[in-house]
Amino acid sequence: MKYLIATAILLLSSALNAQELLQFDNDSQRDLYRSLTAELRCPQCQNQNIADSNAIVAVDMRQKTYELVRQGQERQQVLDYMINRYGDFVHYQPPLNRYTLWLWVAPVLMLTLLLGTAIYRRSRQPQHNADTKSELNTELDQLIKRYRSKKP
């Protein structure tokens, strides 16, 4: 019974004290804020997103993201706002342009090359194999024949 009361108090107190630091109008705004701060990159401490970083610029960018989301701006509008100021660098999802095209093309190119060589080699090999095999077979047949003929 003691434990039950203690647990109840613990659970209740945490529920009562739960208070959000940032207020949002609805859940979709909160989700948008979360996903945006996770995929925007901190220009100061590289390889951290702005949700993760406490650099001054990350604090400011979080604040700005919050303001823009509260104003009801769309995901792409907020991203454009940031990219307009900090460049493509600031978004973890690189845009498709003539510099980044290779990121997508190179693996496909390598795979096709690899497949191409594999098929090319395959197409040449079996013929060769069959030849040696039949040669070997006739040789073996002869051996067997000779062995049998020796037997009384």
């Binding site: 220009p43 100061q44 650099a55 001054i56 610029v57 400011d60 960018m61 700005k64 100021r85 900090y86 460049g87």
Partner: peptide, 12 residues
């Protein structure tokens, strides 16, 4: 408020 800095893309 570092507003101009943000608009200029200042990172620090």
């Amino acid at each position: 408020e570092r507003s101009l800095s943000l608009d200029l893309g200042v990172s620090g």
